[in-house]
Design a binder for these strands. Sequence first.
DNA 1: CCAATTAGTTTTCAATCTGAACTATATGGG
DNA 2: CCCATATAGTTCAGATTGAAAACTAATTGG
Lengths: 401, 401
Amino acid sequence: MNEPTAPGRVGDVRRRNLSLVLDSIAKTVDAKPSRAQLAAGTGLTKAAVSSLVADLVESGLVSEVGLYRDGERGRPGQGLELNSRRGVVGMEINVDYLAVGLVDLAGNLRFHSAVESRNRGMPPAKVMEQLAGLAAEAKAAAVAEGIAILGGGLAVPGLVDEKSNVVLSAPNLHWESEQLNPTSLLEGAPLGVKLSNEANSAALGELWYGGGKPDFLYVSGEVGVGGGVIIGSELYIGPGGSAGELGHIVVHPEGPECSCGGFGCLETFAGQEAIFEAAGIAGGTLGERTGMLLAALRTQEPKATQAVSDAGRYLGVALASAARLMDIEAVVLGGHFAVLGGWLKPSLLASLERYAPGLLAPENLTISRLEHSGTLLGAAGQVIRSVIESPFEFLLASKLA
Amino acid sequence: MNEPTAPGRVGDVRRRNLSLVLDSIAKTVDAKPSRAQLAAGTGLTKAAVSSLVADLVESGLVSEVGLYRDGERGRPGQGLELNSRRGVVGMEINVDYLAVGLVDLAGNLRFHSAVESRNRGMPPAKVMEQLAGLAAEAKAAAVAEGIAILGGGLAVPGLVDEKSNVVLSAPNLHWESEQLNPTSLLEGAPLGVKLSNEANSAALGELWYGGGKPDFLYVSGEVGVGGGVIIGSELYIGPGGSAGELGHIVVHPEGPECSCGGFGCLETFAGQEAIFEAAGIAGGTLGERTGMLLAALRTQEPKATQAVSDAGRYLGVALASAARLMDIEAVVLGGHFAVLGGWLKPSLLASLERYAPGLLAPENLTISRLEHSGTLLGAAGQVIRSVIESPFEFLLASKLA
DNA sequence: CCAATTAGTTTTCAATCTGAACTATATGGG
DNA sequence: CCCATATAGTTCAGATTGAAAACTAATTGG
């Protein structure tokens, strides 16, 4: 009724095992496993692994990196790793800036570039044009480093339809039902460009390239308060694709009206604008206002400390509810909340302890260290991940070419 | 890192296809598909379906039910259906009653029995003893109807460890870390007895045997306020197995202290006890108090209508948060909330519209019609479902026997 | 320099699906 | 009554794939 549940064919076994072997290689970062180690790790026979690895090497996804002697005696193994001469471009459109990065299959950020850009209210075509300039830089970097670009990921701060490349709504950009053509940013990349949501991408970036526990809630404090839910090392997006809207959890039933039309949403207490306003900070670019807020916090200006403490308290209420509802055991703070982390944490932890005592251990509340590259890494990572999960399709395509 | 991700073997294809065919037969209730129709429906060839069905019939899971002529000409097909001479016993321990039911593979409730029983504070052994009497009734009914019992499911109002048959905690029963031996209730049943959570089972019962949309939140108003989250036709239990704790969402940060140690939880506003207290109803059994409340509502006694209206309002706050966070599009009210449904719905809908305007269409807020058999059906259904999802294991077992 | 040890390949075999040919059983028109 | 047509279901050769075991390759230490 839901998935059409395709029949199992004999060939599916190979699809699955190709992915299993590739994933094992990907997981074993720094270790460069041999075929024999992969056989032991996966439960497959050496014969099967040899055959599978041959296909993966031929397609260019995996490369052999010299010999590897581990034990005392015996023939040394051939080290295997994800080919670092294949890469994916991660891109991000946000309210105040644009950014690109080049990530190789092994997960190294090989190039990074960002520009400030006031995108709120700007027509999508204009923004895409500017982004194309950054993408060209990434392409040039790839050529310089000898990296073949397989595809790209583009994160935007809004709800997207990944299949049709439509931004369904991005209120903070004032976009609604905007058809983008992200694939044109990377002409010729075999896997094209995948559109995704900013908070979700950041959560995935944190999972794959940051402090990646298998289950956690990522809290994204950009202009809005967003979230990304990771369960069992997978992104939970919900039936309609818009799960994780932490910013519109009701934290006070008598609270003020929110831009979403509801009342008492977390965003009205802990959104960037709300914090700036409560701290009495106005005017200037986002960067300037953030600087002013941090300066005020450093001098312990009462209005500023109170504003951040209040935000932490209400964030604690929201997280208590979220943790109880979804059985979440760890939280990672990103974006604005990462910047304010140190000032936010005390009131946040106190609030969590008040509203959900014993549920979330303080050491499970962490601050993202990926800073602004998390979203990029996540956007690119989704494409890398799709190859790791279905290498068979990639093999087919590369055989045709 | 999380699942050990077993390697794909050639034989896995058959496992999957056995399940695919069995599931197709199960989904096609009333239609009794032929092998040819299954082939068309699944995408497998007739040859493969014939071979798979042969195994399923031999194991007793599927039975052939006479000829079936559909078109104008041609040889008629052999109708196939889940064997209604195989059944599973669903059992429920709750605070105020015990219940059992016999469910055949096709999902028909063939026998049902319940007794009132004050189980709060009762030692588990005593409760299990009484339940054994009910289980014996179900076994006798199975013999009378010629049904072979494959296994059973036992739902309890608390957090359970399904692997070790331990009730980790059931605060409303005053149980903590209680080792049960549910399998002894159905001596000789090849699949044993599976322990599960009451709210989750009720949600699954609603999914499989009620108004089963693929995505919804089931709200269980028993003594506590629980919930079960169904996403993509599967139960979401979270990393620790305790997701869906709707009762401890914070609906008012200045609310009273809750039994969980937190403050302002939904349960303190909309739990059974809270409603009775606010309505000024005390004394007597649960059934008597419920009767008094319904009577007071019918005569529009102000305290009672106000109590229920308040409960609905706060339930709306919790559902608004839950719907935003998990992207939930439909809600089913069960238990106490189903009983109060008509009186609760107006304030609940108004509150939802205030706190999350436009998110949940009124027609997607429904009241369960399964009444007290929902939990039973879900508990038994989990065992039936496990057979449908891995018939290969069942085939193996039945070949050995 | 050879025994021991470990890595990786080749070969044979069994499981399982597909596809095509074949058998089985019904309807309806001449 | 009988045969063309149509549909259901079975049988059998062919292809894919991993398991198991035998084999080849490469390295170390005595």
